[in-house]
Design a protein around this nucleic acid. Structure first.
Length: 223
DNA sequence: ATCCAGCTTG
DNA sequence: CAAGCCGGAT
């Protein structure tokens, strides 16, 4: 039944929030930077993304989307090299920037007024922008209530026996959105808490379940 | 199922 | 020094 999972999801949120406090978390200083980070972090550790973003900042091209678009693909890929997959990501980032330019001229407030059900599919048509990148842009750069699912979300819920390991992106997204009211600050904070818990406790190789904020939700209690 | 890649961590 | 990284396209 769905009621049980709803209760679990709300209790897990409360447990993380009680232990860790509010995250005050935003994956970038500006909406534009959030978009850049969303592409660069595709299957890439955030620490590497930070280096790439710093190089863009130092090159003074992070001030506007137009400044970024003024770079050649080769120049851009060289700057973002530390983030890995750099040739591919240069193309993807430029695709996203061009979309943003024609959609709103980098005025993100314009996008915020649009309907999520309309804007999301348009973003997904941009080559290189998949569901996670799209949702990250929509939630953190635009401010529309879509839940961001990532590898951490999947790992945590799977380890807590709530979903199969190979659950598709949209099914996992629905797990949250079917139960949580559309609320940007809530979605923001929930995802932020998941990221913090995954990095510090629910790690891939050596999980530290014993003192994890979510250990009360493990199958047999403390592992 | 494979490719795309550099970088940090345990 | 290998595993893994806030994926997506072909």
């Amino acid at each position: 039944m769905r009621g049980k999972r709803e209760r679990l999801l709300r209790e897990m949120y409360a447990a993380m929030h009680d232990r860790l406090g509010p995250s005050g978390w935003w994956p970038g200083e500006t909406p534009l930077e959030v978009c850049v980070g969303a592409v660069l972090t595709q299957n890439t550790a955030w620490v590497n993304v930070k280096q790439a973003i710093q190089r863009l900042r130092d090159a003074q091209v992070l001030a506007s989307g137009h400044a970024l678009l003024a770079l050649s693909e080769a120049e851009l890929s060289e700057l973002i090299r530390p983030a890995g997959f750099f040739r591919l990501k240069a193309v993807r980032l430029r695709n996203l920037l061009r979309f943003l330019d024609d959609a709103c001229g980098f005025d993100f407030g314009v996008l915020a007024g649009q309907d999520l059900g309309d804007l999301r599919p348009r973003l997904l048509k941009v080559s290189g922008i998949g569901p996670e990148t799209a949702d990250s842009v929509l939630l953190y750069a635009v401010g529309l209530p879509t839940f961001v699912v990532d590898a951490y979300t999947r790992r945590i819920l799977h380890r807590h026996a709530m979903v199969p390991e190979d659950i598709p992106y949209h099914d996992l997204r629905d797990v949250f959105m079917d139960v949580l009211e559309p609320d940007v600050p809530l979605y923001n904070e929930y995802h932020a808490l998941i990221v913090r818990v995954a990095k510090d406790w629910c790690r891939a190789r050596t999980p530290r379940c014993a003192d994890c904020p979510l250990c009360p939700f493990l199958d047999g209690g403390v592992a």
